[in-house]
C-alpha cells in the first residue's frame, strides 16, 4: 500500500504519526499541501491512502475531495471534514441524531441574531461557524456585549463571519473533556482544565492543561455515537459536564493529541495508524 500524510506543516502530531507508522512497517510519504498541483479535470493519483492532516480547513476540504475523486482512501473522508468543520451543520446533525448538545441558534443578520439571543439567557456563547483553537469564541454576558460583538462581525467583511452561531452557555466545572474516537472505539480521554492563562477557555493551545479522564461506559458510548454522526474515522469529541449530564459541543475532524499521550498513557498515534491501515485495506 502506498500511503501519504498530507500536511501543511509537520506539527508535533504529524511527527508522532510518521514515527508510529514507521514502527509498524509503514513508510508514510510526506505530501505538502502547499506544493500540490491537482488536475481537476482528470483526478489521478498513485497513492492508495491519504492520512489527512492539513492544518488549513480550506485545503483539507479540497484535497480530501480531490483525492477521493482520484480513487484514494482518505482518512478522514471529505464528508466528515465538511460536516464537522462547520459548526452550523455539526450542531444541527448532532441534535438530530439525539446526541445531547447545547441549545444553539443560527442567524444571518444582527437583528435576527439579537432576537435569537432572546431564546437563550445570558451569558451565552458566540462562535464563528468555521474556526478552531477557540479563536473568536466569546462568552457574551449581556445584550450590550452581544450588540458590540455583532457590530464587530459585520465589519469583518467575510461572509461566513456574518453567519451568527449563538449557543447556550454551559456552566462547566472549570474543565471540559476531549475523547478520542478511533473507528468505533473511544481509546482515551482527557480533561482540559481552565487555568489563569486560558480564562474560561479550556483549549490546551490557549493555556489549558490536560489530565487523564477515565473512559466510563457512558462517556465512551456517547463519544462513539457522536463521532458516528459524521461517519467512521478518527475524531476528537469535545464534551462538557452539565447539571444534566454530558453534552457534546464539538467534534474535531483533524484532532490534535500532543498533550494527551502522556496523561492517558495511551499510544494515540499508534492506534490512529493501526486504524488507518486497516480501514484503507478494506
Amino acid at each position: 500500500m502506498r500511503a501519504a500524510l498530507l500536511y501543511t506543516i509537520i506539527s508535533a502530531e504529524n511527527k508522532l504519526l510518521i514515527e508510529a507508522a514507521k514502527a509498524r512497517g509503514l513508510e508514510l510519504e510526506r505530501l505538502a499541501d502547499g506544493e500540490l498541483q491537482l488536475e481537476l479535470t482528470e483526478p489521478h493519483t498513485d497513492y492508495d491512502a491519504i492520512l489527512q492532516r492539513s492544518s488549513s480547513y480550506a485545503r483539507t476540504l479540497y484535497t480530501s475531495f480531490w483525492f477521493e475523486q482520484a480513487g484514494a482512501f482518505v482518512c478522514n473522508p471529505y464528508r466528515a471534514h465538511q460536516l464537522c468543520g462547520d459548526k452550523f451543520l455539526a450542531s444541527t446533525l448532532l441534535a438530530k441524531a439525539g446526541i445531547p448538545t447545547p441549545k444553539t441558534y443560527g442567524a444571518f443578520s444582527p437583528e435576527s441574531a439579537t432576537q435569537a439571543a432572546a431564546h437563550l439567557s445570558f451569558p451565552l456563547v458566540t462562535k464563528p461557524v468555521f474556526g478552531s483553537w477557540a479563536r473568536m469564541v466569546h462568552k457574551i454576558q449581556s445584550r450590550e456585549a452581544l450588540e458590540a460583538e455583532l457590530e464587530n462581525r459585520e465589519e469583518m467583511g467575510h461572509a461566513f463571519q456574518k453567519v451568527y452561531y449563538l449557543q447556550e452557555h454551559i456552566d462547566k466545572p472549570g474543565r471540559d473533556i476531549r475523547a478520542f474516537v478511533v473507528g468505533n472505539e473511544c481509546i482515551a480521554a482527557i480533561y482540559r482544565n481552565s487555568t489563569e492563562k486560558s480564562g474560561w477557555i479550556t483549549n490546551t493551545g490557549r493555556g489549558g492543561t490536560a489530565s487523564k479522564c477515565e473512559v466510563s461506559d457512558e462517556l465512551g458510548d456517547l463519544a462513539v455515537r457522536a463521532a458516528n454522526v459524521f461517519g467512521e474515522g478518527i475524531y476528537g469529541v469535545d464534551m462538557m459536564e452539565s447539571a444534566n449530564g454530558l453534552v457534546v459541543h464539538e467534534v474535531n475532524h483533524t484532532t490534535e493529541f500532543r498533550n494527551s499521550v502522556a496523561p492517558t498513557g495511551v499510544d494515540i498515534p499508534g492506534r490512529m495508524i493501526e486504524y488507518f491501515v486497516s480501514a484503507a485495506k478494506r
Binding site: S55, S56, Y57, S132, W133
Partner: peptide, 23 residues
C-alpha cells in the same frame, strides 16, 4: 522558520497561522 531541506539545511520564514487553521 520552516525546514525546506534537511541536507543541506534550508530554512525559510514559516507560513503564518491562517484564520482557517486548526483541528
Amino acid at each position: 522558520l520552516e525546514v525546506k531541506s534537511v541536507s543541506p539545511l534550508l530554512l525559510q520564514k514559516a507560513p503564518n497561522v491562517d484564520e482557517d487553521w486548526g483541528e
